[in-house]
Amino acid sequence: MSPALLEVTDLRHSYQTRQGEHTVLDGLTFSVERGEFVSIVGPSGCGKTTLLRSLSGLLRPSGGTVALGGTVIDGVPQGLAMVFQDYRGSLFPWRRVGENVEFPLLGSVPKSERRRRTEESLEAVGLAAAADRYPWQLSGGMQQRVAIARALAMRPELLLMDEPFASVDAQTRSDLEDLLLRVREQFDMTILFVTHDVDESVYLSTRVLSLSKAPTVQTADVTVPLAFPRDQITTREEGAFVTTRSEVARLIRQAGPGGLAA
């Protein structure tokens, strides 16, 4: 049997503070298979940022391993892209939209191929016409689409997303959710998606993992029995959606007194 795309084994991390050692991650173990869309939900302060930074190789955890495609990572691995919550800090204001999308390909992909992939990615997020504008000339939702396009241009096997839709309004948010499901099909990606929002996690995912407050452990692993393509209205009306949603919410509430932040 081939290894899972992402294998997290007994991942631990703690910071040294003035008050002593502060444990953020306390032995997380889970895996993500190719083609899955896994959401991670948890209360604020559950160490999601630390988890994502460890998965992306930006942070060296104090213990445990992260393996991508069977290889234990040490530093930022190949075949991985990440979309951050703060789109203003993600896109470089001195590069035009197209140049931002092209950025991760510089130095590794020949020019003609870069141009092709940039066009294709911008097309996929519906921003082909905005290539020559600057990111700060676009709305927040459009900027987050540029960030997604940039991730697509990297052709990642695994896409990590850190609460990517938390700072946009509700309508834009549902548009972006559907856009994400579409490009996942088109680019055949595996996605690990961190969110605060139980509804969002169930709507998007094939599987939902929930985490406790720090020191963080995994509290639930729920498979979402919903078919694709999904629809903002009809999917949310399905009985399976409602029961899964309730199940996840209940598991999170049981996990700790903190509950979910809004």
Partner: peptide, 11 residues
């Protein structure tokens, strides 16, 4: 975050 983004892009 600029630097994180660049690092994830493996520049």
């Amino acid at each position: 975050c600029f630097i994180d983004n660049a690092k994830v892009a493996r520049v």
